[in-house]
Amino acid sequence: MLNYVLARLLTFIPTFIGVTLVSFSFIRALPGDPIQVMAGERGISEERYAELAAQFGYDRPIYVQYWDYLTGVLQGDLGVSFVTKRPVWDEFFSLFPATLELSICAMIFAVALGLPAGVIAAVNRGKFFDRALMSTALVGYSMPIFWWALLLIIVFSGNLQWTPVSGRIGLQYYFPDPTGFMLIDSLASGQKGAFLSAVRHLILPTIVLGTIPLAVIARQTRSAMLEVLGEDYIRTARAKGLTPARINGIHALRNALIPVVTVIGLSVGTLLAGAILTETIFSWPGIGKWMVDSIFRRDYPVVQGGLLLVAVLVMVVNLIVDMLYGLINPKIRKR
């Protein structure tokens, strides 16, 4: 197991370098640079521009800049935000809990609904429920996420006034946030109604962010279940006189989980990508919104650092998923 993890960690190195290269060059490929953005519409004199460029090191050859950046990263230095002058590392970790909270809720939402839906669809294969569920899942998967968000806001926030439109908590609440997770902090603050307000703020972003993973998980669970239900050991389970609920929910689902866990792992990437849109629409102060803002500001260090941290996160999650396979199906452990 240890050897396996080490081997996997080695494969991180090329991915890691690739991500730094891509993030470094993409943000520079965009027209404009941080100095121009800062100068705004008034513009800036040639001399002042050259002075600032020299100050930030943008006058040097591009490969020198990249080398500087890479050696910095390897020493744990992601640079300082151009705009706020705070270290990228600090900014990331002050905003990350918000994204993590939202992502976890979205994932719970997707798994809690997607797994049972997939199982029920597989068991009732070809019947009305199966067809209805699978077409809904297809719609959910194909729907543009920003449009779906706006639709929900119009109905639930606009017409019905059930949920707030944006933010993480009502403005009347103020309390320290030691964990950065609003649900925990609001509960710890002991303020009346704070927790409920945090929950209400979470509902719509959770649904929006969780919709695509939900659709993918439901469809994957269904097809994995269909395959497993034809296996000999399911016949054995039936010959033991077990109830259908036990056969489907324990004997079949455990075997069907492997491909489902794979898509859950892959969904983490989708989730972080989706967080960018979702957080922007709901003004959710997480890393998604932070990155979008930084791209508009051409805040090179933030975009580079943020992308890198997100990429590392996705790689680590997928490594954990691979290790989970062995836990679910001991037969895979041998390999």
Partner: peptide, 23 residues
Amino acid sequence: RRKMIGKDLAMIFQEPMSSLNPC
């Protein structure tokens, strides 16, 4: 019937390797 099969009336199958749940 479920109360009866697996208890009073049992069956074994051709492929023992695939007839047991691998998990």
